[in-house]
Amino acid sequence: MAEKTTTRREFLLQVAQGTAVAATGAMLWLYMLRQEARAHPYALRPPGALPEPDFLAVCIKCGKCVNDCPYDTLKLAGAGGNLPIGTPYFTPRDIPCYLCPHIPCMKACPTGALSPALKNINDSRMGLAVIDIENCLSWRGLRCEICHRECPLKGKAITLETHPRPISKHAMFYPIVHSDACTGCGICEKACPTEEPAIRVFPHKMVQGKIGEHYRLGWTFDTEITQDFKPSGPPATGGAPAKPPKKAPGMDYLNEGGL
């Protein structure tokens, strides 16, 4: 084999070519990373998932959570989709999370992207259910309340509020979601009977506001200033607040003999 001699000029050119290839590659690479990381923020993660940026860094994309999900709820995001590549997610309208008490997906995770700090599945916060009150059957005045009935944490995550209404004997039963208890499992979204679900689960970041530190709810604590706004002494006897009627119309219609 003849020894190849390289002149300085050739060597420098080779270095330049190598660098050019590497730089082109790196730019393409960075572009793809940015595309992936900017992917649509609508991704519901399995229970126990770390906050999204940490989750994206730590998840090794092995799919063991998907293997161990007994309901085939979890899927891995494919390449070219609108979710960050290779990460697990679920679509509640297809298959919601059924809140296995022993949390097999979290236990399968080898990296801790699904954090073992989650001990009770009811403490998971995969997302938050939001009701479109314009299209919710219950809010429109029909009797539905399926979401409330199906909710694994009914009475805590979804409560019903009854409202009398003057035009009908029927009361309104408004389902209300409470963020302090909603796990984001999506069983309500799956159960919702409307053509497009009127209750849907979103990542908290997409729907939840934040009050901010500088707002003070004055009536919740005592300071020198809020003292001034409080009524001094017992209320005058003559001006007692009107008591709510014992029975609002429609509240007890089944017992009122109206039917």
């Binding site: 799919g63 998907v66 899927k75 891995l76 995001a77 494919g78 390449a79 070219g80 989709g81 590549i85």
Partner: peptide
């Protein structure tokens, strides 16, 4: 590997 095992994407 992912797309063969866990379903197709554009990989």
């Amino acid at each position: 590997h992912r797309e063969i095992i866990f379903g197709l994407g554009l990989g």
